[in-house]
Amino acid sequence: MPDMTKSGTVTAAPDAVGAAAPAPQPLKAEKARGLWGDAWQDLRRNKIFIVSSVLILLLLTITFFPSWFTSANPAYGDLAKHYLQKPQLGKVFSAEWLGYDQQGRSVYARLIYGARASIAVGFGTTILVTIAGGLVGMIAGYFGGVVDSILSRLVDVFFGIPFLLGTMVVLNSFPKRTTWVVIGALGFFGWTQLARVMRGAVITTKQADYVQAAKALGASTTRILFRHILPNTLAPVIVVATISLGVYIGAEATLSFLGLGLNGVSWGNDISDGGAQIRVAQWIMLYPSIMLTITVLAFIMLGEAVRNALDPKTR
């Protein structure tokens, strides 16, 4: 190929013509479409992804701006309107829409304000476990040897403790259970799963030739970890984190139901309270349960959709 020698111009070498680019568009249009870009193209057309993300966006809006959805005070109980006041399904978005509980508080308002507890615990715990578990997993996976042996056994020990039992024992010793306390307790027992996922992903990635190539260039450990390994291990971590977000929301409700959750407005507390009244006033328990189920489902569906989009096998 004598014509392949330096031309110095921007014209493509002969063999580069008609390259493997997806479409013969101008170069600017295709900029920055990496694996994430492809995954995004995939997700945009995925109905499950659209439904779950719309739901999650709605939940986030409710969390941050509850007053947009109801003017009623969730803590204000008017005994005149106690639980015998049935839901008036015609009066959409009003305080009496979903009825009142046994203390005469609006079920709808409590539903709106209860979202904050679930979302805060869900996101808070997930961020905590992703950082803590991710870090442990990354260190164990990258450095291997004795470090890995010790950290892996530590993970095994924590993994052996029943998750809910552990959090219950810890929470039981706190008289005042703020959001931070609940997040801390859930995170303390929950980080192992992400540590395992991260460790596995790092071990696979560190053997990749591009990591070897970076080492051969003399790249520092920090550079290898953050430029090469981390971006390539994020996919499985994001998937697991999204799914576990739903799980933590469910766990928070479970703890509240058992009387060991947050003090204050929360779906779990309401489900617990409503449980006692289920024979006479099903709606008190019904609506928070539905909200909880939808929320958990939305995050799990989102996780599944992201997993499918990022799975290299479907590429």
């Binding site: 392949m4 921007v10 070498a13 390259a19 493997a20 680019a21 170069l27 920055a32 990496g34 694996l35």
Partner: peptide, 15 residues
């Protein structure tokens, strides 16, 4: 022997 304009492409876009 590659087009210098390919600088912003990702590896999977190549053979």
């Amino acid at each position: 022997g590659l087009n210098p304009e390919y600088i912003n492409r990702y590896p999977h876009q190549f053979s």
